[in-house]
Deep mutational scan, measured.
Amino acid sequence: DLSALRVEEVQNVINAMQKILECPICLELIKEPVSTKCDHIFCKFCMLKLLNQKKGPSQCPLCKNDITKRSLQESTRFSQLVEELLKIICAFQLDTGLEYANSYNFAKKENNSPEHLKDEVSIIQSMGYRNRAKRLLQSEPENPSLQETSLSVQLSNLGTVRTLRTKQRIQPQRTSVYIELGSDSSEDTVNKATYCSVGDQELLQITPQGTRDEISLDSAKKAACEFSETDVTNTEHHQPSNNDLNTTEKRAAERHPEKYQGSSVSNLHVEPCGTNTHASSLQHENSSLLLTKDRMNVEKAEF
């Protein structure tokens, strides 16, 4: 173990290094160091905050020279020094078990990766560091076993998940096959086929009936047209017969005018059967003409 005197000496050296690497504005270890034209180094955030307070150039807090945003430059070497100082402080805390008085939040800088452990060898070769390295080497064999167990647990979990997924996939297939086998029997399929065939026959029977009705309507229309044509021909046949009657009536009127007047009046009210309204109107006109002729003949006879 380190003596108290040596611990104090190391602590004083760390404090001196820390004062050199402090920012003059925030009085902390410089984060993202930036250098000016006057070779003074500050935190990048502190300098941008200072420049944004005034429009135009501002003055350096140490030498009062003008500073602009374009004049600022990043210093990589200074950032490396800060990183190495942080590593020294971490090693000091691990070796002594004491917390550094002016320690900052170094938890963000710590890294437990194997590459980081290899890099620590180049920091300080001390008894405390050696003991700590031995402890780490002793704890390393235990870690692979834990990793193997965790991997086995994960693989077993994956296997159970896969088996569950396969079961879920197989179950719908089985149910679907069961439904297909038990849903419709052979008799049901035959009945469905016969039902479809009967429906098709009914459709075939319905369509000819409609065509037959249309044919019957067409035949009825044709018969009505033929009947009207026969009526017209009958009226045409009746007209010459009426003319013959008129000639006979004229002759009778010349011989017996008194008797014919009474008979002509009675004939006005008689309509021949089986004739249309057109034929009756023609008869009325003929009878009126005959009456006028008879009157003329009677007057001539009187004179």
Rank of each mutant, 00 (worst) to 15 (best):
N102P: 12
E28A: 11
A4T: 06
R165G: 09
E202I: 00
T247G: 14
I25N: 03
E226D: 07
R132I: 01
T68Q: 04
S3H: 14
K49V: 03
L86I: 06
K54F: 04
I25K: 05
I20D: 12
D218T: 06
S288L: 12
L81Q: 03
M296L: 13
I123T: 10
V177I: 00
E140R: 07
N191F: 00
Q138T: 10
T163N: 12
Q168S: 06
S122Y: 07
T277Y: 14
H256S: 09
L85Q: 15
E83D: 04
S219W: 00
Q80N: 15
S288R: 11
V13L: 05
V265E: 06
G199D: 01
D200T: 11
E74M: 08
L291P: 13
E9S: 10
V190F: 14
D95S: 15
Q154T: 00
A16M: 11
H40T: 13
K109V: 06
E258S: 02
D39H: 02
L136R: 08
L2F: 09
H40N: 10
G56T: 10
C43E: 15
I215K: 13
L136T: 04
S126M: 11
N246Y: 00
S266D: 11
G274E: 14
Q93D: 09
L245Y: 00
D39N: 03
P144D: 02
N157H: 12
V232A: 13
D244N: 03
E115K: 04
P144H: 04
N15Y: 09
A224R: 12
L48A: 08
C90L: 11
T207A: 06
T36E: 08
E236H: 00
V232G: 11
H284M: 03
V153M: 08
L136K: 02
D95R: 15
F78E: 02
D231I: 05
N105W: 03
E28L: 08
N143W: 04
I67T: 12
Q209M: 00
N243R: 08
K108I: 14
K222H: 08
E83I: 13
H40M: 10
Q173R: 03
P61C: 00
S280L: 03
P257Y: 05
N234F: 02
Q205E: 00
M47Y: 11
N65F: 10
Y260V: 11
L94V: 09
V161Q: 12
E285R: 00
S281N: 04
T247R: 05
L86Q: 15
L2A: 06
S156C: 07
R169I: 00
S264N: 15
S156K: 04
L245I: 05
K87L: 10
T166H: 11
N234S: 05
E285S: 02
D244C: 04
A133T: 04
P33A: 02
K222G: 15
L72N: 00
P141F: 04
I25S: 06
S288V: 14
H278S: 11
T189Y: 00
K293M: 01
V161G: 09
I123A: 14
R212G: 09
E187R: 03
V265Y: 03
A16W: 14
N267R: 02
K293S: 09
D213L: 00
S122K: 09
C90G: 06
P272H: 03
K222Y: 00
S139R: 08
N157R: 14
S287N: 06
Q53A: 08
K69V: 00
A101P: 02
K69G: 13
V161T: 09
L86F: 09
N15A: 11
H269R: 08
D184C: 00
A133P: 07
Q209L: 01
D66I: 06
K259P: 05
D294G: 14
K250P: 14
K250F: 06
K87R: 09
K44Q: 02
D39Y: 06
P257V: 05
A220V: 02
P61T: 05
N15M: 04
V7C: 07
Y104W: 08
T248Q: 02
S79A: 07
P208V: 00
S103T: 09
V82L: 04
I30K: 09
E22W: 03
K37A: 01
T68G: 13
I25A: 04
N242L: 06
I89E: 02
G56Y: 02
T36W: 02
V232F: 01
S281R: 14
Q154A: 11
L203Y: 01
S280P: 09
K31W: 11
L94E: 12
K37V: 02
E22A: 04
K222R: 06
A223V: 04
K55F: 06
A91E: 12
I215L: 04
A220I: 06
F106I: 08
T248F: 03
A279R: 12
P61H: 04
R212K: 08
S216I: 06
E148M: 01
G274H: 02
E285D: 06
L268W: 00
E120I: 05
V270Q: 02
K134L: 02
G262E: 07
N157S: 09
A220C: 14
L146A: 12
K259T: 06
L146E: 07
F106L: 11
K31H: 11
C23E: 15
S266T: 04
L27Q: 06
L137P: 08
E9F: 04
I215Q: 05
N286S: 04
H284P: 10
S58L: 08
R132Q: 10
S228T: 15
S145A: 04
E99S: 05
L151V: 06
A279K: 04
A4G: 09
E258Y: 00
S150T: 03
D66N: 06
S145R: 02
T96S: 06
Q59R: 06
A16T: 08
